[in-house]
Each structure stands twice: as structure tokens, then as C-alpha cells.
Write a protein that binds this DNA or RNA. Structure first.
Length: 421
RNA sequence: GGAGGCGUGGCUGAGCGGUCGAAAGCAGCGCACUGCUAAUGCGUUAGGGGCCAAAAGUCCCUCGAAGGUUCGAAUCCUUCCGCCUCCGCCA
């Protein structure tokens, strides 16, 4: 949630930010008008309540017919104005919900992913002596991914991971946990269902995000799209001691996405599916430390992808392509030699500084040196998105005869060095 | 799923229709005092919002949540949520 005072005191800056994020800047004036109305109504209501409190207190001492009728009139007026104010409140909340987080000033401005900025290329692309195949044909041949059966059982955009692919998943998860626990992250297996209330507080239920979520009406619960969504609320309503910061969590969960609006995009295989497993990092830090923490989380991602010896690049996402809750976003894109004509970099990791956008919603604070409570900054970052890492591994480590070498760091987890028939 | 009990400030816990945003204790902070590392006394310590340029101040709201009764609700009623105990079911 965006700071109401920022909109009130600095509307031009907010407009500019909205524009960069491709959100209609007219929202600002609309909000300010509504806010003005809301404040007027609130003032009127407060004054009447004050009067009512006075009269009621007086009635405790001396009950006169005069006072009673005065009180009854007040009661009616209050209930009228209150319902008017309630309407304004919910309109105002709805509108506020349409504000994304604002990008930092130095984030590259752009309209879509074509204007993202490559910051770094790392790792060496393998020199194939043959035409690398795509992961799906390799995996189907080896019998470790079955999409056809999954489609029959659950519909499109599902997949079975079988045999060594299933083992590879656990290897990746264990590798990420081992690596991050060493860095002081607290391991977590969080809930994958979340109440609408908290989901909204996390800034994940704005109208354009809602469509991508699975909802269970009978129980009024959403399925999470990432463990970020239930990791963050660990700080809900909490006041952390400054000395306990940063707080870093590493979570593992299944993630659910409806992929509404991505019709026809990446329809084959397991690159874009309704259900996948992911290791996720989440940090709470002091506001002045969030940029530093962002770099740190990015370095953890590079460490993880790098340890698999996969070529990747780091991209700074431009304003028009950034996530809703983000003030800055980096992606790690991993090289997939079997994609497209001559291979492609595809997003495998995403790393976001959400500043106080989420912590304001969940009310996550810390006590600063003066003993004052202050909103934390929160950040989230992919550890491993299992499905996509699987793709990268299969394509980068394929052999000419259609087998797959197991990356060195995963061999001890798998207990083998090659996947074959 | 059935029966019963309970949800109050950082914690423990009183209050069960009217100066209650809330006793008391603990913890924290401040001041005072005492020579033996702490006791004692006094004071102080919730969050959100409106007015105000801001501070001060002032007013409003908040006693699990949402409604209702009432001039007035932490206190009464309804529903929901959570916790505990017993039974049932289940990995």
C-alpha cells in the first residue's frame, strides 16, 4: 500500500511514478478529491461523536427528558453520516489499492521488457558440437517429464516430474537451503493458502493481480502464487528489535498461478505452468539498508545459479515491466540453449525491493535507536524456481546421445552423475 | 463435526451498562535517593485517524472481527474467527 501522505503532500512525484509504471496518473487527482471528501465527512462525524459523548456522560449524572431527546436526535444524525462516511472509506480504499509502489528515480524508464537493461553477463556458454535439443524432447525421451498425462489428469499447463527429474527437484531445494542456511537465513515451510485480508495487505490483490490467483470460495482462501506471500506476513503486526535485523527467511513451497492473460504464451512443457515449486528468500531490513540488502539477495541468486555452472545474465527491469509492489527489480535470466533458434536467456530468478509497500499493509515495524517504531523495508527474491532450473540444467548439460550430465554440486544429492535411460 | 470454557495494553490479569483507553502486578523508560552492583520512592510507557504549516494541543476511533440493542457497550444479544478441554474423525 502506498503512503497516503505521500499522495497528499507530493502528488506530482506520485503522478510521475505512476506514469513510469504505466498506471493512469489521473488516479492521483481522483484520490485527492475523494480524500478531501472523506476528510470533511470524518471531521463532521468526529464533531458529532464528541457532542454525543458529552451528552451521554451528562445523562449518567442526571437523566432529563430534554437530554434524552437531544441524544436521540444526535444518534440518528451520527448513524446517517457514518454510513455516508463508510461509503467514502471503502471507495477511498479501493482507489488506494490501485496505486502500485513507485520506482526509485534511477530505475531505467521503459515501456516493456524490451527496454530492460542488461547489467552483467556471467558464465561461459558451452560450445556444442551438435545442435542442442530442447528440454522437453530430451525429458520425454528419458521419461522424466510427462506433460501429456498431466494434461489428461489436470488440464493444460501441468506436468509430472518423474524419476531423476523428481530427484533433481529435491537436490535443488536441498542445495538452496544448505547454501542459504549457511548465510543465516531461517528455513521455513509456509502455508500455501492465505486469507483475502492478508493477501490484500501484502499488496497482491490489486485488480490486475487478482485474476492470476486461485480462490477457494468455500473456505475464502487464496492459493499463494509464491511463498513470498506467506513469508512476508511472518512480520505482520510485529515490532522487531533493531538489533535483530536483518531478518532473512528462506521458504519452500508450491506456487499456484492461473496464468490468465498469458494465453498462447509458452504453452508447451513446464516453463509456464499452473503449479510449480520454488525456494524463495524474504528479508526485513531497516529502510536505509534496503538497497544494500537488494544487492545481497541478488548476490545469493548469482551464487546459487553460478554454483550449477550455468551461464546467466543479470537484468535491471525497466519501470514499465516491474512488479506491482517493487521500487526496483532485478532478474536473473539463465541461458537455455535449446530454446528458440539458437538458444535464449529466460527469466529464472527475480529479485525485488518492495520498500515499505508491503510492510505498511501488514504493519511490520522495528524499534529504532530513539525507541520510535518505524516501518521496515521488505525484499523478496527467488532462490530456485525448480521447473525453470530443471529446464536450464537439462538443456545445458545434455550430451549428444540425449543423456544429461548431473551438475557437480548436485551429484552428491542425486547419488549419480548422469541421467540416462 | 458435537459439547463446554476462554479471547482486555509489551506480558500476567481485574473490570460484566455511565468521568474505563481501562485497576493491579511484572517488564521498560525517566527522575530522586542510598556506597556495595541492586533495593526503595515518585513519575512515565498502546495504536490509528481528523483539525493544525508543524510542534504543542485538542477531538474521534480501537478491549479477537463484523453486526445489533441502548442516550451511552470492554461489559447485553447475534454471527464469524482463533485458542484451550472433552468426544468423534483423520496423516
Amino acid at each position: 500500500m502506498l503512503d497516503v501522505n505521500l499522495i497528499r503532500n507530493n502528488p506530482e512525484r506520485v503522478k510521475e511514478g505512476l506514469l513510469k509504471k504505466k498506471v493512469d496518473p489521473k488516479l492521483v487527482d481522483k484520490f485527492l478529491r475523494l480524500d478531501e471528501e472523506w476528510r470533511n465527512k470524518t471531521r463532521a462525524l468526529d464533531d458529532l461523536s464528541a457532542e454525543q459523548n458529552l451528552v451521554s456522560r451528562e445523562m449518567g449524572r442526571n437523566q432529563s427528558q430534554d437530554l434524552l431527546s437531544k441524544a436521540q436526535i444526535l444518534k440518528q444524525r451520527i448513524s446517517d453520516i457514518e454510513s455516508e462516511r463508510d461509503v467514502l472509506t471503502s471507495k477511498r480504499d479501493d482507489l488506494l489499492n490501485k496505486f502500485p509502489n513507485l520506482p526509485f528515480d534511477d530505475v531505467p524508464v521503459g515501456k516493456d521488457e524490451t527496454e530492460n537493461k542488461v547489467l552483467k553477463n556471467a558464465g561461459k556458454k558451452r560450445d556444442f558440437k551438435f545442435k542442442p535439443k530442447d528440454y522437453l524432447s530430451l525429458a520425454e525421451h528419458l521419461g522424466i517429464i510427462n506433460v501429456k498425462k498431466a494434461t489428461e489428469i489436470s488440464g493444460s499447463r501441468f506436468g509430472y516430474l518423474m524419476g531423476d527429474a523428481a530427484l533433481l527437484e529435491f537436490g535443488l531445494v536441498k542445495l538452496a537451503f544448505d547454501t542459504l542456511i549457511k548465510e543465516g537465513f531461517v528455513p521455513v515451510v509456509p502455508p500455501v493458502m492465505i486469507s483475502p485480508q492478508v493477501y490484500k495487505e501484502m499488496g497482491r490483490l490489486s485488480s490486475d493481480q487478482k485474476e492470476d490467483k486461485y480462490f477457494l470460495p468455500k473456505d475464502e482462501l487464496y492459493l499463494v502464487g509464491s511463498s513470498e506471500h506467506t513469508l512476508g506476513p511472518l512480520g505482520r503486526g510485529e515490532v522487531f528489535e533493531e538489533s535483530s535485523l536483518p531478518r532473512r527467511y528462506v521458504g519452500f513451497s508450491t506456487c499456484f498461478r492461473r496464468e490468465a492473460g498469458s494465453y498462447g504464451k509458452d504453452t508447451k512443457g513446464i516453463l509456464r505452468v499452473h503449479q510449480f515449486d520454488k525456494v524463495e528468500m524474504y528479508s526485513f531490513v531497516k529502510p536505509e539498508d534496503s538497497e544494500k540488502e537488494h544487492k545481497f539477495l541478488l548476490s545469493m541468486q548469482e551464487k546459487l545459479v553460478g554454483s550449477l555452472d550455468l551461464p546467466y545474465r543479470v537484468v535491471e527491469i525497466c519501470t514499465g515491466d516491474m512488479g506491482w509492489t517493487d521500487a526496483r527489480q532485478f532478474d536473473v535470466e539463465t541461458w537455455m540453449p535449446g530454446q528458440g533458434e539458437n538458444g535464449e536467456y529466460r527469466e529464472t530468478n527475480s529479485c525485488s525491493n518492495t520498500t515499505d509497500f508491503q510492510t505498511r499493509g501488514i504493519n511490520a515495524k522495528f524499534k529504532n535507536k530513539e525507541g520510535k517504531k518505524e516501518l521496515l523495508h521488505a525484499l523478496n527474491a527467488t532462490g530456485f524456481a525448480v521447473g525453470r532450473m530443471l529446464i536450464a540444467i537439462i538443456e545445458n548439460y545434455q550430451t549428444e546421445n540425449g543423456e544429461i550430465e548431473v551438475p557437480k554440486v548436485l551429484r552428491e544429492y542425486l547419488g549419480k552423475d548422469k541421467i540416462k535411460i
